[in-house]
Computed example of a mutant assay.
Amino acid sequence: MSGIKPEQLEAKLNAVFAPTRLEVIDESEQHRGHGGWREGGGTHYRVVMRAPAFAGMSRVQRSRAVHSALSDELAGGVHALALDLAPPD
């Protein structure tokens, strides 16, 4: 059983935040043998996102907003999510 596909995360984040920059990087292979890892990847992700929606939000608020938007994916296959979030430069 493989985890969540990056395209699924990208679609959800694009729909919710309309970012000006979005990178969804599957880092699962770097975590082989660690908790939550599964053959086929899709368990450990890094998200780099710049979105106007983050203006005026603290780092914690931005993180909570992304976790809320991806709640189904976090409950259903994504084990770890590293976030680099900010409003556009």
Rank of each mutant, 00 (worst) to 15 (best):
G3D: 08
A86E: 13
H67D: 07
A51P: 05
G3K: 02
A80M: 08
P88S: 10
A75K: 14
F17Q: 01
D26C: 08
G40P: 00
P19Y: 02
D72Q: 13
G33C: 10
V47Q: 01
Q61W: 00
D89W: 13
D89Y: 09
S68G: 13
R38H: 04
D26W: 02
E27R: 12
H31R: 05
M49G: 04
A86V: 06
S71A: 15
S28L: 06
A53Q: 14
A55R: 11
D84R: 15
E29A: 15
V24Q: 08
L74R: 03
H67K: 09
A51V: 11
E39N: 14
A11N: 09
Y45V: 01
G33Y: 11
G36H: 09
G76K: 13
T43L: 11
E7W: 03
V78P: 01
L22I: 09
E23I: 10
W37M: 11
P88F: 03
S2E: 06
G3W: 04
P88W: 06
T43M: 07
G35W: 08
H67W: 05
K5T: 02
Q8G: 00
R32S: 06
S58C: 07
E73H: 12
G33V: 12
Y45T: 02
V47K: 01
E27L: 07
W37K: 06
T20C: 07
G77T: 09
G56A: 05
T20S: 15
L85S: 04
E7D: 14
L85F: 08
G33N: 10
V16N: 00
G76Y: 04
P87S: 13
A65Y: 01
G41L: 05
M49P: 00
R62S: 08
D89S: 15
H34L: 12
I25R: 07
L83F: 13
V78K: 00
G35T: 07
V66C: 02
A55P: 00
S2G: 03
S71Y: 04
K12I: 13
A51S: 15
A55N: 07
H67S: 07
Q8R: 10
M57F: 07
I25G: 06
A55D: 13
M49N: 01
G40H: 05
I4S: 03
A82C: 09
M49T: 03
A18R: 06
R64P: 05
P52N: 12
D84Y: 12
R32V: 11
F54E: 00
R64H: 10
M1N: 12
A18I: 04
E7G: 12
